[in-house]
Simulated scan of single mutants.
Amino acid sequence: MSPRPFDSPSDYLNAAREMAETGRPTLARLLAEEAANRTADPVEADRIRAEWLGPNHRKEQ
């Protein structure tokens, strides 16, 4: 079975959760950041960043 492509921010967040659970926090953070970047709603994107990346994360403008 081939891996399925990531089509939505939720796919990236699911993968981030899996990486966090398996002890790969750096990959989890990268996936969460990509989820936030792909989220159309700026409020939701900020929530994802706050939850996964912390208050010191620099968001691209």
Rank of each mutant, 00 (worst) to 15 (best):
M1L: 10
S2H: 05
S2P: 12
S2C: 08
S2E: 13
P3R: 13
P3G: 09
R4S: 10
P5E: 04
F6V: 14
F6Y: 07
F6D: 04
S8A: 11
S8V: 03
S8P: 01
P9E: 07
P9R: 02
P9A: 10
P9C: 04
S10R: 12
S10E: 15
S10I: 07
D11H: 09
D11A: 03
Y12S: 04
Y12W: 15
Y12K: 03
N14W: 05
N14L: 11
N14A: 12
N14H: 13
N14S: 13
A15N: 07
A16P: 09
A16L: 05
R17E: 13
E18Y: 14
E18G: 09
E18L: 14
M19H: 15
A20Q: 15
E21P: 00
G23L: 02
R24P: 01
R24N: 14
P25L: 03
T26Y: 08
T26L: 13
L27K: 13
A28I: 12
R29G: 08
R29N: 12
L30N: 10
L30G: 12
L30V: 09
L31V: 03
A32T: 14
A32E: 08
A32Y: 10
A32F: 09
E33V: 01
E33W: 02
E33N: 11
E34S: 12
A35F: 01
A36S: 14
A36T: 04
A36R: 04
N37Y: 10
R38H: 14
R38T: 01
A40N: 05
A40F: 05
A40Q: 05
A40E: 15
P42I: 00
V43L: 06
V43C: 00
E44G: 00
E44S: 02
A45P: 00
D46K: 13
D46Q: 09
D46A: 15
R47P: 02
R47G: 08
I48H: 05
R49M: 02
R49D: 02
R49Y: 01
R49V: 09
R49A: 06
A50F: 01
A50S: 12
E51Y: 04
E51K: 10
E51N: 06
E51S: 10
W52L: 15
W52H: 12
W52R: 10
L53H: 07
L53Y: 07
G54E: 05
P55M: 10
N56M: 14
N56V: 05
N56S: 13
N56C: 05
H57M: 08
R58T: 07
K59D: 09
E60R: 08
E60Q: 10
Q61F: 08
